[in-house]
Design a binder for these strands. Structure first.
Lengths: 208, 208
DNA sequence: TAGATTGTTAATCGATTAACAATC
DNA sequence: TAGATTGTTAATCGATTAACAATC
């Protein structure tokens, strides 16, 4: 029936890491790698890498390993980043502007096509070639561009409201930079970027 | 013997999330919560929350739940963010400056005390009250301030070099914004912030 | 051929959950 | 007291790893 059997999300979460490592190897001019080499580089067992990949097909050759370019293209296809996604960003404070200026999206499958803020002083500004629009126009703009992915970079107290608005307008994947947990319907995916949680996870181990 | 038995890292990783949720509840004026309420809010089972907390002690009261303020203080102590850590940031591009301007560090246990860049045009600049220093001076500045935590926001090709330098100078926890995997000695902890890996994890599910 | 590495199976390991006695 | 919720145990569930036949 379903071509894709139910693959654990934890496996899906590692694929972008593999993809990033493959990009790094490709940049260094290498053409072939092995599960062992990849694993060493990432601090992951070679068995795990082979097992993860085996969910999707057979990408290597016994005795040889994996052609980096080929595996990379396969992973891009699996993750659906073999084509470009339009992304909106809401909130043009320091963080939002930094994200809008970040050059690392395009060659990895994403293009920021719309930016929003509610501050009249920011509306109309040009940020990295994108004109900042009034947040009031979020629903129609998201629908007009058929945007499915958005990044939220507004202050914490406004994040849930923005979230509700864009979800109503059809957004199905949200990268949330505000340090709060968002409540969303089951079909919407949320990922969080909160540097402080990462720092706090490390201080636990800093017995000094 | 050891007061702290070996607690799974996956549990440690959830504590900052619990702490963040408690802050959110406290901000809304609530004084008491339960594992059930917290779990609903976070999309985690109540059993897991109780199990996680039980590694560290007993913080609740049967029939009542948890006093938010008390549990929060306990978690801060466990994570060692009941005091403030000095943090360095290396790389004053768009992202580094945005991070330096971010106001959310201080009340959660961190203070940026030093900023570095190698670009002469940026050295000497004042960013959010911090004077940008020459990256050449990283080792002595890190030692002088006894800095154990650093954030790397330099272009990918320089990240490993910066990493080696600061690790030699005593840094033991690194938050890496560059989209590459860093190689570090076992005693050094690295966490990664790469928005693209989060986005790619979500596009897998965007069957549209 | 000999050496290397894959893909996969079965075993191990660890994490999550269900359930409940304890007790506020 | 009755109701609620903790902390903890035991069972379940799922993920990782070790090992190896297949084969390049």
């Amino acid at each position: 029936m379903a071509a894709i059997t139910d693959i654990p999300d934890i496996v899906i979460g590692r694929l972008p890491i593999y993809l990033r490592a493959l990009n790094q190897l490709a940049d260094s001019g290498q053409e072939i790698t092995s599960s062992h080499e990849l694993g060493q580089h990432l601090g992951i067992s070679s068995a795990q890498i082979r097992k993860d990949l085996s969910h999707f097909g057979e990408f290597g050759k016994q005795g040889t390993g994996y052609k980096i370019h080929h595996l990379r293209e396969q992973l891009k296809q699996i993750l659906q980043v073999d084509h470009e996604w339009s992304v909106a960003i809401i909130g043009m404070g320091d963080l939002g502007r930094a994200v809008a200026h970040y050059g690392g999206f395009v060659d990895r499958g994403f293009r920021i096509v719309a930016a929003f803020d509610s501050d009249p002083a920011k509306i109309g500004m040009d940020v990295n070639g994108i004109k900042v629009m009034n947040s009031n126009h979020l629903p129609e703009e998201i629908r007009a561009h058929n945007i499915k992915i958005a990044m939220i970079a507004v202050p914490a107290q406004y994040a849930q409201g923005v979230c509700d608005t864009i979800v109503s307008a059809g957004v199905r994947a949200i990268l949330n930079y505000a340090p709060i947990t968002l409540v969303v319907p089951p079909k919407v995916n949320v990922q969080y970027i909160d540097p402080v949680t990462h720092l706090q996870r490390m201080t636990y181990y800093l017995t000094d």
